[in-house]
Amino acid sequence: MYDFAYHKPSTVADAVKLLADPDAKAVSGGHTLIPALKHRLNKPSALVDLSGIAEMKGIRRAGNAIVIGALTRHVEVADSAEVKAAIPALAYLAGHIGDVQVRNRGTIGGSVANNDPAADYPAAVLGLGATVHTSKRKIAADEFFLGMFTTALEQDEILTAVEFPIPEKAGYAKMKNPASRYVMAGVFVSKGPMGVRVAVNGAGPCVFRQAEMEKALAANWSADAVAGIRQSAEGLNSDIHGSAEYRAHLVTVMAKRAVAAAG
């Protein structure tokens, strides 16, 4: 990797100041950024290590929602009694991200802020209609994910927590890319205070909602309701592991499985 300055602030306010430098990068678990640095694909002037900020840690229940601090590692979400009781599908998703090493380092904030189209968490954020808390404001999931690796976050804005409304039912199913084990096509479904939501990750350049499936499930919450709905392949990802048509097909299969998992 190239040389960079290293900062480890202990408050959100200090971190925000350091990120005023447009060439500085925030890092939490580092599972995306560090490999990129090692490959010399990224040349930040400074790394702002968020891991020392206590106020961004922890899982708590707040009324009819679960609030997860941005620095919470995947393994902590997967193992959390609070999350397992309130949103088991979210604990399941966290427990199936990457591998043990990834789950022990990677954080929810890093995953959501990075918005990798093949990451798991964005499906849960959008699929549950969560609210993203930042150092400046609160952003609804529907306004947060803007495109491939692009979110509503500004340069000096830090994602501090994600607030998940507790659904009646939720489920997640994914097909993994055979090589990377990232998501090739995944579907997160939920029914609850935010209505019926179906979020698709992996298949397209950015996580998106499947309106036709939402409508069908609102009328009839069953795997059969989505079995006949075909996702259009237009605009979906295509690579050496699978065509857009294959991914479109998988969206229907994973939607069925997600609904079945939700019960």
Partner: peptide, 23 residues
């Protein structure tokens, strides 16, 4: 079932890392 070395028509190695070469 898994492994395949893939070059594109210009001779660029598409399966050039563990992200794309399925060990």
């Amino acid at each position: 079932l898994l492994e395949s070395c893939v070059y594109d028509a210009n001779g660029q190695l598409l399966s050039g890392s563990m992200m794309d070469y399925t060990m």
